[in-house]
């Protein structure tokens, strides 16, 4: 029989490294990632789950890590922006964002990259409409989006 507790020990594998920590049940996954593990690449841009700056991939599924408790991710495999590059070498999507000026302040970029990563995995050659739909959950306030669409298109070619 499972019991109700206000904190518990969890084990999460992030970008290949397994972390075991005691966390309060109320702690959001994004705060666990940023504050407890110091992986500050994922960001927070709202408090209603609208902006997507905290998007990460949990067990292969794109989620907003501010709408998930850390305890819900117990046992999960998580991918964040820090895991995209191969050493010092940017991956194709990161390079495409750079080439196409798909970022200005760069605050939404980690979440945007994770959404684009999930999109291209599921659909390696998305149409323009599919790219827009795949990024609908990520707000960018700098670029007006079009350079992001172009970057994702380029990375898919």
């Amino acid at each position: 029989m499972s019991t109700v507790t206000t904190s518990r020990s969890i084990k999460v594998t992030i970008n290949g490294t397994t972390y075991e920590r005691e966390v309060e049940a109320r702690k959001l996954l994004i705060h666990f990632i940023r504050d407890d593990l110091d992986l500050t690449g994922s960001h927070i841009g709202c408090d209603t789950g609208n902006c997507g700056a905290c998007s990460v991939i949990v067990d292969g599924s794109l989620v907003k890590s501010c709408m998930l408790l850390a305890v819900q991710a117990d046992g999960a495999t998580v991918e964040t922006v820090e895991g995209l590059a191969h050493g010092d070498e940017l991956n194709k999507l990161q390079q495409a964002f750079k080439d196409h000026h798909a970022l200005q302040c760069g605050y939404c970029t980690p979440g945007m990259l994770m959404s684009a990563t999930a999109l291209l995995r599921a659909n390696p050659h998305p149409s323009e409409d599919e790219i827009k739909k795949g990024l609908q959950g990520n707000i960018c306030r700098c670029t007006g989006y079009w350079n992001i669409f172009e970057a994702v298109k380029a990375a898919s070619e």
């Binding site: 499972s2 019991t3 109700v4 507790t5 206000t6 049940a25 109320r26 959001l28």
Partner: peptide, 9 residues
Amino acid sequence: MLLREVGYA
């Protein structure tokens, strides 16, 4: 962003 204390099962 910061929830009140809560139990979880």
